[in-house]
């Protein structure tokens, strides 16, 4: 992969919680306008790695990193970078849907409002909801509470909420793990569609999902007490049909994890 194709890069990234390593020495390129999946057994540091891309780990007091994370070639952790600004350009969808206890409309409008959006807010909300394939279901009850939506709808609302700030990258941390199969399919379709305009990184422990939706796959595994490391990285097609490392093969054929 060419350097210019990568929107996000990590260089020798190690993350600590206190004195404990959660991931170590991660060097990885995330391709522009593609879907990159991060798979691996639970506890191997997938979420930790993902949260480095928008500096969400800053919110955990005991966490610290060494190494580099580059966004468009610029060091995300340089002291001149404001994490708030980063999160504005790199959106995130969480494992459990976390709509704010506000109306559907206000949830989507939240980001644009705090960021001083000056255009037509109603139109932005509509187009964001439409892109998240939720508009048809909620257009008649935009003012009702977001907490009344079903789990799958809530998760699509969270995606719409992330889209409304018009980010360049969307990070998704097991976005379907609390959803039923039908809602999961809807979100996977949505991701495929979004990948035309956005770069997406998705953490999943569902191998079929990684195989179905992603272009590239990273397999992470925890090694002793050094935390998660990249075992294998490449095109999804190749990883799933022709893994080079036997641990990858063992994992994707379901022999552990």
């Amino acid at each position: 992969m060419q350097q210019s194709d990568a929107i996000l890069q990590t260089r020798g990234l190690t993350v600590y919680y206190g004195s404990k390593q959660a991931v170590s020495d991660i060097t990885l390129d995330v391709a522009r306008h593609r879907i990159t999946a991060i798979i691996g057994p639970s506890g191997c540091g997938k979420s930790t790695l993902l949260r480095c891309f928008n500096r969400m780990n800053d919110l955990i007091p005991k966490s610290r990193i060494t190494g580099q994370v580059l966004f468009e070639g610029r060091d995300l952790y340089s002291p001149t970078v404001d994490p708030t600004e980063i999160r504005y350009q790199i959106g995130m969808v969480f494992q459990r849907p976390n709509p704010f206890p506000k109306s559907i409309f206000d949830n989507v409008a939240f980001g644009p409002r705090i960021n001083g959006f000056r255009g037509d807010l109603a139109e932005l909300v509509e187009s964001s909801l439409a892109r998240a394939a939720l508009w048809a279901e909620v257009k008649d009850r935009l003012t009702s509470s977001a907490l009344a939506l079903s789990g799958g709808q809530q998760q699509r609302l969270c995606i719409a909420r992330a889209l409304a700030v018009q980010p360049q990258v969307i990070l998704m941390d097991e976005p379907c793990s609390s959803l039923d199969p039908i809602a999961t399919l809807a979100i996977e379709d949505l991701m495929r569609e979004l990948s035309a305009d956005y770069s997406i990184v998705i953490v999943t422990h569902n191998m079929q999902q990684a195989a179905r939706v992603s272009d590239y796959t990273t397999f992470l595994m925890g090694i002793e007490n050094r935390g998660g490391q990249i075992i294998e990285y490449g095109e999804t097609r190749l990883i799933f049909t022709n893994p080079k490392d036997e641990r990858t093969e063992a994992y994707i054929t379901g022999r552990f994890g």
Binding site: F71, E72, R74, E85, Y88, Q89, N115, G116, Q166, Q168
Partner: peptide, 9 residues
């Protein structure tokens, strides 16, 4: 970074 217009800044 591309999105950071002077206004946004």
């Amino acid at each position: 970074m591309a999105a950071a217009s002077p206004d946004f800044r």
